[in-house]
Design a protein around this nucleic acid. Sequence first.
DNA 1: CGACCGTTTGATAGTGCTCAATTCAAGTGG
DNA 2: CCACTTGAATTGAGCACTATCAAACGGTCG
Lengths: 215, 215
Amino acid sequence: MPSWLEALARGRRRVRGGAALFNAGDRFHSLYAVHGGFFKTSMIDDEGRRQVTGFFMSGDLLGLEGIAAALYDVTAVALEDSEVFVVPYPLIEQLSRDKAASQRELHIALSREIAREHRLMLLLGSMRAEERLAAFLLNLSARFGWLGYSSAEFHLRMTRADIGSYLGLTLETVSRLFSSLQERGILAVRQRHVRVLDLARLQALAGSPGDSAQG
Amino acid sequence: MPSWLEALARGRRRVRGGAALFNAGDRFHSLYAVHGGFFKTSMIDDEGRRQVTGFFMSGDLLGLEGIAAALYDVTAVALEDSEVFVVPYPLIEQLSRDKAASQRELHIALSREIAREHRLMLLLGSMRAEERLAAFLLNLSARFGWLGYSSAEFHLRMTRADIGSYLGLTLETVSRLFSSLQERGILAVRQRHVRVLDLARLQALAGSPGDSAQG
DNA sequence: CGACCGTTTGATAGTGCTCAATTCAAGTGG
DNA sequence: CCACTTGAATTGAGCACTATCAAACGGTCG
């Protein structure tokens, strides 16, 4: 978890796979630093369609968007048994007043989330299905790498439907793309287990990079 | 402009239509509060495709995403002769340390920007072309209304290409949609001049609301 | 072992894109 | 004042991509 938050954590909270950490519309009071496990966030549009807006793993901060309206505006659900540090927002406000460094860190966290979403908008607005999936996989891969896990072989925690919703595709399209990438020798896929066989070609499909946080 | 920033503005800056206020990659130093005129922000993906990420008018804050990397990560271009207040970020940091209220306001501005992009992701990920344009127009309309202008009749400052880029559509599709909405008596469109003839039907197309800031 | 959820695969159709040709508006210069 | 230029917008035809509908398969957990 981000070091500047360590002093502020007030307890942990365990969340079972499938359970919600918070729901859209809940009163906002705390940020959550993921300490272990895996979360997805989603929201519902006026037509009732649910869309996944992000995936969060160790070190990522959940709840930033809640400050504005004093309500969380997404729902955060654990995709496996997970744990978070609970960081009450009032404490953060206070600490940032005392310590300039912490203040800046919070601003950076917020600002980084904005930048992340810029990239996602770019993906949703201008990439085709295969590019989207490639970019998504590279992002996941890089994040696993940073956490010390293999970046070449990993386990997807989310369903094809989750991926599709996040990328603006149907689950069938996602499934077909996995099959196609496998046939071409770029990936080895078995259910949710993914192995990257040809990183260079995967990067070429995505238009290159695979960094940036909080996919 | 947001009242909490008034005390911090250090001068104004005029920007001619077509000129850039800042470019992606420039060193970050200030936020800008739009005081008059109209801006678009855009960024470039790895394939070199440019995409519009937002439109900004009086009262909106530009540059928030620059805090994270100490670099602006979008380019802000004036779509007509415009004016901004320049608010140096170090001053903001300092004020937020002294005044809890200002600190919270900044957090809210950042957080609101995150929420705005959530909605845009929803739009890009799950709405069809016509829904997107309807939602876009309602958003613009509402914002003009808040500024005291007519919400039923207004002048688009951006080209069809800008709108298309923002909505993840081609300019031809945008143009066709305008024609179609006009034929159906929902809008009266002449070039960039738009008049809403049937608000209810426009809202129905979008799935209802038209609020939320910084479209 | 059976039930259930998730995934894969196929066939078909629809939506929006691409390419291309006009039309239109606003300037510019003769 | 009017040809001419230029950038934007409109419109059309055909097609590519992805969604939709449908069926079968697989893995996992009671």
